[in-house]
Amino acid sequence: MKHCLIVDDSAVIRKVARRILEALEFRISEAEDGAKALAVCERDMPEAVLLDWNMPVMDGYEFLGHLRRMPGGTRPKVVFCTTESNVEHIARAMQAGADEYIMKPFDKDIVAAKFQEVGLV
């Protein structure tokens, strides 16, 4: 079973994403900020990360930079999931190593399509 780490400071978003991804047969870990997400990755590197941009402590962009420099950190497929919709944010995320980008609010079809595009389902 593939492992997906959901990183978002909103418990509601994590819960919704968890339900969608469990239905897609992922094992789920959660973190409410980038620093806690890095700790999860050190213990158990996921195949996928659903990543929020704006979070306290360490935002998604900073987390992604740290992740990609970790041993094995280039392997996870990273899907940014955020309310940031301008082209500059999307370009910055992709240049930092994100594999895909989805907007909030999202639904099962959107998540499934994006995860399929990056080869996870």
Rank of each mutant, 00 (worst) to 15 (best):
Leu50Pro: 02
Met94Ser: 03
Asp59Thr: 07
Gly73Asp: 05
Leu5Glu: 09
Met1Gln: 12
Trp53Val: 15
Pro71Asp: 15
Leu21Ile: 00
Glu88Ile: 12
Lys114Met: 11
Val78Pro: 04
Ala48Trp: 01
Ser85Met: 08
Ser10Val: 01
Lys2His: 02
Ala39His: 10
Pro105His: 12
Lys15Tyr: 07
Ala35Met: 13
Ile110Gln: 13
Gly72Ile: 08
Met45Asn: 12
Ala93Asp: 02
Glu84Tyr: 06
Gln95Gly: 08
Glu117Tyr: 03
Asp99Ile: 01
Met103Ala: 15
Glu42Gln: 14
Ser10Trp: 01
Met45Ser: 08
Val111Tyr: 05
Leu21Thr: 06
Ser29Thr: 14
Ala93Ser: 07
Gly34Arg: 13
Met1Ile: 10
Asp59Val: 11
Gly34Glu: 00
Leu64Gly: 09
Ala93Ile: 09
Met45Gln: 11
Arg75Gly: 09
Met1Val: 11
Phe115Trp: 07
Ala37Arg: 11
Ala23Arg: 12
Lys108Ala: 13
Leu5Ser: 04
Met70Asn: 08
Val121Leu: 14
Ala39Ile: 10
Asp44Gly: 08
Ala98Thr: 09
Gln95Ala: 15
Leu38Cys: 08
Glu117Asp: 14
Ala17Gln: 07
Met58Gln: 12
Ile13Leu: 02
Glu47Lys: 11
Asn86Trp: 10
Phe80Ser: 03
Val57His: 11
Arg68Asp: 06
Cys41Met: 10
Lys108Thr: 14
Leu67Arg: 03
Gly72Asn: 05
Val78Gln: 04
Met70Cys: 04
Asp9His: 05
Asp44Phe: 04
Glu100Pro: 00
Val12Phe: 15
Lys104Tyr: 06
Gly65Trp: 05
Thr83Lys: 09
Phe80Thr: 04
Val121Met: 08
His3Ile: 00
Phe80Asp: 00
His3Trp: 00
Gly97Pro: 02
Asp9Ser: 06
Glu42Asn: 11
Ala113Val: 01
Ala37Thr: 04
Val40Trp: 02
Met103Cys: 12
Asp59Arg: 07
Val12Cys: 06
Ser29Gln: 12
Leu5Trp: 11
Phe115Leu: 14
Ile20Glu: 03
Asp107Arg: 12
Gly60Asn: 14
Arg14Gln: 11
Asp59Ala: 13
Gly97Phe: 07
Pro76Thr: 12
Asp52Asn: 07
Val118Asn: 04
Ala113Pro: 03
Val7Thr: 03
Ser29Pro: 00
Asn54Ile: 14
Glu117Met: 09
Val12Lys: 07
Ala48Cys: 15
Cys81Tyr: 02
Ala23Ile: 00
Glu22Gln: 14
Arg69Asp: 15
Glu25Val: 02
Leu51Ser: 05
Glu117Val: 03
